[in-house]
């Protein structure tokens, strides 16, 4: 009798401990309840499983020669599940791509015209964008004293003599391609957003 209770006690404790070990911790993502519904069958961007054996134990398709969870595109570079837009294509309903090369700063400064007027709405949007993409180096007033700018060094204040009178095209080109120590931000900020930032930066140039 006592032995029986002892056995059942130990067993139930083991079962509880086993269940507790299902929880996610550190490198273990936790036990999945219905894995076939958790893992995407189509290519899922930002989720890539290269290991062909993953999910072999519940494979539902014998013909594809890999496990249930395998999610990689063998036709892409590095088997990635996402890729860049095809070369020489333009997204519908947006601005044409900016094609002036990095070394033609003077040309851009002369040619490029801001499609947005300096209205309150554009400036407000420009400020939000500036505070997202620029403020940590250039500072809230464009003095080059942002939290990163202080460590990064070499951030020109917008109202310094060297850049105070630079036109919008110059600013747009510098955001797109970078200049000196500043990196290129064309991949992060859309053309439209860049022109709005230009409008806001111009108010900071004149303070």
């Amino acid at each position: 009798m006592i032995r029986r209770t002892l056995y059942s006690g130990v067993l139930s404790m083991l079962a509880a401990g086993l269940l507790l070990s299902c929880a996610a911790k550190n490198d273990f993502p936790g036990l999945e309840y219905s894995p076939q519904m958790y893992h995407s069958t189509p290519y899922e961007p930002l989720t890539q499983i290269k290991d062909e054996d993953q999910g072999n134990w519940l494979d539902s398709n014998d013909e594809d020669a890999h496990g249930e969870f395998y999610n990689s595109n063998p036709y892409n570079n590095f088997d990635m599940t996402m890729r860049e837009p095809a070369a020489n294509t333009v997204k519908r309903g947006s601005y044409l791509p900016y094609r002036i090369p990095k070394d033609s700063l003077e040309l851009a400064a002369q040619l490029m015209v801001n499609p947005f007027d300096s209205t309150a709405a554009v400036l407000a949007e420009g400020k939000v964008l500036y505070n997202s993409y620029c403020i940590h180096c250039h500072g809230s007033k464009g003095m080059g004293d942002g939290t990163v700018g202080k460590v990064y060094k070499g951030v020109t204040p917008y109202n310094s003599r060297a850049v105070k009178d630079k036109p919008g095209g110059h600013i747009f080109h510098v955001i797109t391609h970078g200049k000196g120590r500043m990196g290129a931000h064309g991949s992060q900020v859309s053309v439209e957003d860049r022109w709005k930032i230009v409008r806001y930066v111009q108010t900071l140039q004149n303070q």
């Binding site: 269940l19 507790l20 996610a24 550190n26 309840y33």
Partner: peptide
């Protein structure tokens, strides 16, 4: 602990790879 354990199945809260 059994109930707690059951509630962690399919939940990845705390996953820190």
């Amino acid at each position: 602990s059994a109930i707690d354990g059951l509630f962690t199945v399919g939940v990845q809260q705390g996953y820190q790879p």
